[in-house]
Simulated scan of single mutants.
Amino acid sequence: MDTASLGGILLALVGILAGLLLEGGHIGQILQPTAAMIVFGGTLGAVMLQFPLRTVLAACRRLVRIFFHGKDSGEATLQQIVRFANKARRSGIVSLDQDLSTIEDPFLRQAVMLAVDGTEPAELRRIMELEMDNHTEIEEKIPAVFESAGGFAPTIGILGAVMGLIQVMQHLDHIDEVGKGIAVAFVATIYGVASANLFFLPVAGKLKHRIHEEQFVRHMMLEGIVSILEGMNPRILEVKLESFLTSPRAKGKEESKPA
């Protein structure tokens, strides 16, 4: 579990609600189902209009990665590649065909399969880099869904507030209820601004971070399999791949070099 994500949401909610209670308010003042329906329904509709349904559903499925993330996935992948290197050194690269069914990551499985099939290192690198580029283009749309929701929600919150004020103005003959009605109307604005700044935009930022980490691990996978094909010593290979986990800046410098 990602304690930063869970703790961040809890801290934000506790801070806001505590401030409300200290000012003499109560939670019931901001619990308005109608306002929630307007803001979240309108935001979801706008997002679905902007993005294909498949992308929206993919973004919803990715939410679990905000709170649960395998911290040791990179280290486990490194050790798996080193085992492949030792086996290939003893029995040849073709011997890795027996391990294909045990590889869970589709990217690594495809890279190993190409290696077993006798693909040249340069060609394997070209194929898998193209796969990474396609994968990255798809993944970059996921945070964009939440960024768009963060942009729509405050505006729709204002729309909900205006709709509430319209209802209030139609009942000015009951002046005692006007103040209460105005307060209720502005709850929609609270929902819009709060959901954008406490959920949608932070989620987009965290997903970008997660995607960057996954891309980094895929670079390590590719470099590891190509190095195995080139006959690199497993111990040297392990040291080489460890730099991917300990020096994130190294990848940025490597990617900036001309091809």
Score class of each variant (00 low, 15 high):
Thr77Arg: 12
Phe200Gly: 01
Glu104Gln: 10
Phe84Gly: 03
Leu21His: 12
Leu21Ala: 15
Phe107Trp: 08
Thr119Glu: 08
Ala183Lys: 07
Gly15Tyr: 01
Glu23Asn: 11
Phe199Asp: 03
Ser148Pro: 05
Phe146Cys: 04
Leu229Cys: 08
Arg54Lys: 13
Ile228Asn: 03
Thr55Phe: 03
Leu49Ser: 10
Val116Ser: 02
Asp173Val: 15
Gly28Lys: 11
Arg125Ile: 05
Ser148Ile: 05
Ala183Leu: 10
Arg62Ser: 13
Glu123Asn: 10
Met48Thr: 01
Gly118Thr: 01
Val184Ile: 10
Leu10Thr: 09
Glu147Asn: 12
Phe146Arg: 04
Leu237Val: 07
Glu242Trp: 05
Leu159Ala: 05
Val217Arg: 10
Met1Gly: 12
Ala188Phe: 05
Ala161Met: 14
Phe216Tyr: 13
Lys87Ile: 05
Glu123Leu: 08
Glu214Pro: 07
Val178Thr: 01
Ser256Trp: 05
Val56Ile: 11
Leu78Tyr: 07
Leu6Glu: 03
Ser243Leu: 06
Ala122Ser: 14
Gly92Glu: 07
Pro154Val: 00
Met232Val: 12
Lys71Trp: 11
His209Lys: 14
Pro106Leu: 00
Ile81Ala: 04
Thr55Gly: 06
Ile156Pro: 02
Gly41Glu: 01
Ala194Leu: 12
Arg65Ile: 00
Gln80Gly: 08
His171Asp: 13
Gly45Thr: 11
Gly252Glu: 14
Val145Thr: 06
Asn197Pro: 01
Phe152Ala: 07
Asp176Gly: 15
Phe51Asp: 06
Phe67Ala: 15
Thr43Cys: 10
Asp117Ile: 00
Leu49Gly: 06
Arg62Leu: 07
Leu172Gln: 05
Ile27Ala: 15
Thr34Ile: 13
Thr77Asn: 11
Arg235Gln: 13
Gly41Met: 03
Leu229Glu: 02
Ser5Ala: 14
Ile27Phe: 15
Phe68Ile: 07
Thr119Phe: 08
Gln50Ser: 11
Leu198Val: 11
Asp176Ile: 12
Asn134Glu: 14
Gln98Arg: 15
Asn86Phe: 03
Leu159Asp: 02
Lys251Pro: 00
Tyr191Cys: 03
Gly24Ser: 00
Thr119Ser: 11
Ala144Lys: 13
Ala115His: 04
Ile236Thr: 09
Leu6Ser: 09
Tyr191Pro: 06
Gly205His: 08
Val239Leu: 07
Asn134Ser: 15
Leu13Phe: 12
Phe152Asp: 09
Leu100Tyr: 08
Gln79Thr: 03
Glu140Ile: 10
Ser148Lys: 14
Phe67Tyr: 12
Phe199Leu: 11
Val39Thr: 00
Val94Thr: 14
Ile138Asn: 13
Arg235Trp: 02
Gln170Met: 14
Met128Cys: 08
Ala149Tyr: 05
Lys71Ile: 02
Leu114Ser: 11
Tyr191Glu: 01
Ala250Ile: 12
Leu49Tyr: 15
Phe107His: 11
Met113Asn: 14
Pro33Gln: 09
Met220Cys: 02
Phe40Ile: 01
Ala4Pro: 00
Lys206Val: 05
Phe67Cys: 12
Ala76Ser: 14
Arg61Asp: 13
Val193Pro: 04
Lys71Val: 08
Met1Pro: 13
Ile158Leu: 11
Gly164Pro: 07
Leu245Trp: 09
Ile38Leu: 12
Met163Leu: 15
Ala58Ser: 14
Thr119Asn: 00
